[in-house]
Write a protein that binds this DNA or RNA. Structure first.
Lengths: 245, 245
DNA sequence: CAGTGGTCTAGACCACTAG
DNA sequence: TAGTGGTCTAGACCACTGA
């Protein structure tokens, strides 16, 4: 882009020859952040931007789409492109396998199944999943250890009809999450984070004084439009969950 | 796609006429989730997929790129495309303006500035930001209320050199976050979530019993590659942060 | 070094929606 | 209803990387 007719040395010399659409994205982003374009203001339409950058509309479109997905821009068919008023910025939250999260932190990951078996779905969980209470579900309580010290506690309720065979899953080699990944992958995931006091078996398993703060991550998952199960994941206080923009 | 030579009625009749690349994405995803393609296995190369779907490589590419960004696939130039072994699924975490988060929940949003002024950067914050302790920074402590009840406590440290004019910002009309959005937008954001006990002024401001669990969201932001500031956001226990896949 | 994905072009049709 | 973005095609060159 920006080159007239010669073969173009693919980008003078400078850095690492950013791909054109990335360069355009960076340019527009810098204009937004420098204040050239304030929140709510309109950008030129794609065709005009393409002309000014000396490339095709597709290339500009790629850059704008990316910025829109990141939450910086809002686009509408006839309304054009504008700087987002309320930047509901979209941060990315990594959701790794449980053992992997520990390994990444540089620890040895092991886990111990504390309890596993069928039981009627508790009312509180039923409400969260939109399932009738009392439904027979498979429950697993697993303690994950980092370097042999309690790291987090995994408490799952799984609908066996959507995960045929869970009851016989081998939980000695790896966590139930690995089994689920291979045998009953979810298609939708909803995550809620909150802080709760450690109580009863949670406090005991994590070796925390009762009432001490615990980070609770609730993950409700769906499979084929149906509620597959609920995961309650308790982190000892202070273990952070990371996201980035 | 999948149409031979006739003009094509743009997609039989069924639903809402999904765009071709979306249809392809859905098809591949369903094949992954039905177990046709297990974790680690290879997908056909783009050209072959394009042929089998009866469309161009670009269209297939669009679908595969999207799945790769979502964490379902891993792609390499000569290595081809394969089902992700460890699906570090990427969930989206909404990061709205503070007042907006309250409004969305259907409450009236107001805020009260408890403290604002210059002070030396505390050591703990300095470490988190990679800045020398003692650096003069602007500190703001704001209580956000939902229907006049304490909802969350916002504690900010801002480097005034990267946000010229903060010291004189009008904090009566709207929160400091709105001011920052217009005057010193960040370019990078790192979020960490943890559970902490409510202590001192945090407990007092949120009207919580001391030591009760609090959800702490730390947001470190950068501007032009430099640390702009740190936000410590305390939610009363139980207020959830939502993400989705 | 050869194969695969990454990206760009030039052009086209279409869907949504603001005015 | 007209203007804008959303998407597709057909083809091309190039960058990265596995064998």
């Amino acid at each position: 882009m920006t080159t007239p007719d010669k073969p173009a040395p693919k980008r003078a010399a400078g850095r690492k020859a950013l791909a054109p659409w990335r360069a355009i994205r960076a340019d527009i982003l810098s204009r937004i952040q420098s204040g050239d374009w304030g929140p709510g203001s309109h950008l030129p339409k794609e065709v005009d931007l393409a002309a000014s950058y000396g490339c095709t509309r597709s290339t500009v479109s790629r850059a704008l789409r990316d910025l829109a997905e990141a939450g910086f821009l809002e686009r509408r068919r006839k309304g054009g492109t504008r700087i987002a008023e309320n930047p509901v910025r979209k941060a990315r939250l990594d959701v790794p396998l449980l053992a992997e999260a520990i390994l990444r932190a540089g620890h040895t990951a092991t886990c111990r199944t504390l309890r596993a078996g069928m039981r009627p779905l508790p009312a509180a969980v039923a409400r969260r999943l939109g399932r009738p209470a009392g439904l027979p579900v498979f429950e697993v309580l697993t303690l994950h250890l980092a370097d042999d010290r309690p790291h987090f506690l995994e408490h799952r309720y799984i609908d066996p009809r959507l995960a045929p065979g869970v009851e016989g899953a081998d939980l000695t080699a790896s966590g139930i999450d690995v089994w689920l990944l291979h045998n009953a992958p979810f298609s939708r995931l909803e995550i809620a984070l909150s802080a709760v006091p450690a109580r009863g078996e949670v406090a005991e398993a994590l070796n925390l004084p009762p009432q001490s703060p615990c980070l609770l991550m609730e993950r409700a998952s769906w499979r084929r439009e149906q509620p597959l199960g609920l995961l309650l994941l308790y982190h000892a206080a202070g273990v952070p969950v990371l996201a980035h923009l």
